Simulated assay, not measured.
Amino acid sequence: MDRLWEALLGLPPALVLLLAFLLPALEASTFLGLLVPGEIAVLLGGVYAHDGRLPLVAVVLAALAGAVLGDQVGYLVGRRYGRRLLDRTPRRFVRSDELARALDLVRRRGAAAVVVGRWAAALRALVPGLAGLSGIPRRAFTLANLAGGALWAVAVSGLGYLAGASYRLVERRLGLGGEALLALVVVVVLVRFWRHRRSARHRG
């Protein structure tokens, strides 16, 4: 397990920084966020920052740029093709309850939904397109997108940084190796996979 964890932390810093930009950028623009939450790469970037392998400000800026650009593209796509895309999206990727929650959020909160929706992975992938579809003005959306993206990038990068600090502290004080943290990561991934499979069976 130590070797697996070392392999994860052995990714080139430049690649981690690229992923911290790319995954948030693809969340709403391609709906990738329905399958792979963008904060995974940003959290890893925060851990790298704690280890001194990346500047924390670079991780924050990469995450901010990716989040804002991706949501802006998602908004424009929703504004032009939103209804057709929703009608053609397989329900195994967009669950009806997630879509209903996102629609309700946009209707009730308007542009503020962009800030609120950023904190839930499924809503983060859907809200920008629905904002475009619902006719929220571009200026209002852009301002909310910048504000929400900045808060999210700072918070998630900071959590990754603190996670790196906590792991090092636990490792030093309790003598735990990479197995503990890797086991936690595996459990989180398995739980997410199990929940996805369970919901897919219910929908089927």
Rank of each mutant, 00 (worst) to 15 (best):
R95F: 08
L35V: 13
A20W: 02
D97R: 09
D87F: 04
L61Q: 05
R92Q: 07
L123W: 02
A28T: 04
R84Y: 07
V47C: 04
P37L: 02
W119N: 02
A100R: 15
L64M: 15
D104Y: 01
P55Y: 13
R88P: 02
V57P: 00
V94Q: 00
L56R: 10
A62Y: 10
T89P: 03
Y48R: 09
A58Q: 11
L76Y: 14
A58N: 11
L105I: 04
G117M: 08
V68N: 02
L43E: 02
G82L: 06
L61G: 04
A121S: 14
A25K: 03
R107E: 15
T30H: 01
S96Y: 00
H50P: 00
V77P: 01
V114G: 01
R83M: 11
D71E: 10
A111T: 10
L69C: 13
D51I: 01
L22H: 12
H50Y: 15
E98F: 02
V47G: 01
G33D: 05
A41Y: 06
G33H: 09
P55W: 13
V73E: 05
V127K: 00
L34T: 00
G66Q: 07
A113I: 07
V94R: 01
T89F: 08
A25I: 04
I40P: 03
A65M: 11
Y81M: 08
A122H: 09
L23T: 14
G38F: 06
W119M: 04
A65D: 02
A102K: 00
R53V: 06
R53C: 10
R95Y: 07
L44I: 15
W119D: 04
Q72A: 15
R84I: 05
P37Q: 09
R101N: 08
D97S: 06
V77Y: 06
Y81V: 02
P24M: 13
L103W: 07
R109N: 02
A125L: 02
L69Y: 09
G70Q: 06
G45H: 06
T89Y: 05
V127E: 00
P37M: 05
A65Y: 04
A63C: 09
A20C: 08
G33V: 13
P90R: 14
F31A: 14
L64A: 15
L123N: 03
V114S: 04
L54K: 09
F21W: 11
R95C: 00
E98T: 01
R95T: 01
L32M: 14
R83G: 14
L123A: 12
H50I: 00
L76C: 12
L44S: 04
G117Q: 03
W119C: 04
A122D: 08
V57Y: 05
L99E: 10
A67M: 10
F93S: 03
R53S: 13
A49C: 11
Y75V: 10
D97H: 12
L22E: 12
L23C: 07
R80G: 12
D104M: 03
D71G: 07
V57W: 12
A125V: 04
G82F: 06
V127G: 00
A125F: 01
A28D: 03
P55I: 15
V47W: 01
G66M: 08
R108W: 05
G52Q: 10
L32H: 03
A20T: 11
V77T: 14
V60L: 14
R91F: 04
Y75M: 09
A67F: 07
L54D: 08
A125P: 00
V36M: 14
A49F: 06
V116F: 12
